[in-house]
Design a protein around this nucleic acid. Structure first.
Lengths: 195, 195
DNA sequence: GTCTATACTTTGATAGAC
DNA sequence: GTCTATCAAAGTATAGAC
């Protein structure tokens, strides 16, 4: 038991360190040598824990995306609530989640294309499901006349753009919390910045 | 004259090809070997035209940013027009310009940190001026009470996020034109997607 | 201006001792 | 699980002939 727990801890430290380095310097610009050094290991010892650099990036991203996806699809599937309420919940959850872990957000936005095609495809498919959730909600709002006359895709990408871009400037432990940021984004996206 | 014109043309072709490859595959993932091949040259011949890979990326980005910056600062400095009118013009120009050249937008958003520190700093400073233009306009609107009670920086970054993220999904020669996209973004940013 | 040849560095990954 | 030693390949860049 102790052995397994330690093994898991070691693995988690590896993933966190890798995520941080890949995010700071870019996936291609970060060498396995450097990652090993940051962990106090040699390059060779690293390969005891991982199969390849590509697989490492995939594991980091997949666990990140998949956690939130399940929660979001459940949240939206609850048809007993009106669509604008579910939209509010989606926006707040999504903004809080993705603005809350900078290194992994950076990788999701910037380094998906660094993966080899087969692994990349798995994650692209999951991203597609995120998109489907939001455009689905917007479509529901359109039939009740609550959404303005614009393509749902444009609106959805505008929102994803706002949130995904936060890695450039937002600090989760800065003056504003991810929750407050989510509130601002909700307001901007649904009602705009002007009075 | 002919000699100079041809030289310039060759240089432009080099820049365009490099921008496209760097954007498609990433700066680090693109080798000079491959760039040379795409141009029908050898690696060595490439270095007749450029000083280094880093300098090449810098030239591409600097000419891109600088062109629009002058125009934007002029546009906004015209105090004879009310701030909301100038905001509209800024948003439309900015969205049209940056959604109009995908390869270079990709590089601006993704590869600024691939530059060596000194060159990077020059461009960061110019980006800061873009930011100053938009937050300046939002501040003007705030004193007249037309802007909602939120940090100007959050609003500004929300807008830049929308626009910069277009490289992920928007095609300038697709069904919607950059101009139409700009109109949608103006509406979303100022008034929101909900009726 | 373009080439061949090459110098030098760094990369991801493996073999095998301990 | 961690190491040393090593590999083949690919990286940027330069020298010098033509």
């Amino acid at each position: 038991m102790k052995h397994n727990a330690k093994g898991h801890q070691r693995q988690q430290e590896l993933y966190d360190t890798a995520a941080r380095l890949f995010a700071e310097q870019g996936f291609h610009a970060t060498s396995m040598r450097q990652l090993a050094q940051s962990l106090g290991l040699t390059k060779s010892s690293l390969y005891h824990y991982i199969a390849s650099k590509d697989e490492l990036l995939f594991q980091i991203l997949d666990s990140y995306i998949s956690d939130a996806l399940v929660e979001i699809e459940n949240l939206v599937a609850d048809q007993s609530r009106p669509p604008d309420e579910r939209l509010t919940q989606f926006i707040q959850f999504y903004a809080r989640f993705y603005a809350g872990d900078r290194p992994r957000l950076v990788l999701l936005v910037n380094e998906l294309d660094s993966l080899q095609p087969e692994r990349r495809q798995v994650l692209v498919e999951k991203e597609r499901r995120y998109m489907a959730v939001l455009t689905g909600l917007l479509s529901e709002l359109k039939v009740t006349g609550r959404l303005k006359d614009m393509p749902e895709a444009v609106a959805a990408f505008a929102f994803f753009g706002m949130v995904h871009y936060t890695y450039k400037w937002f600090r989760p432990d800065g003056p504003a919390s991810p929750s407050q940021l989510a509130d601002h984004f909700l307001e901007i996206f649904t009602r705009g910045v002007m009075r």
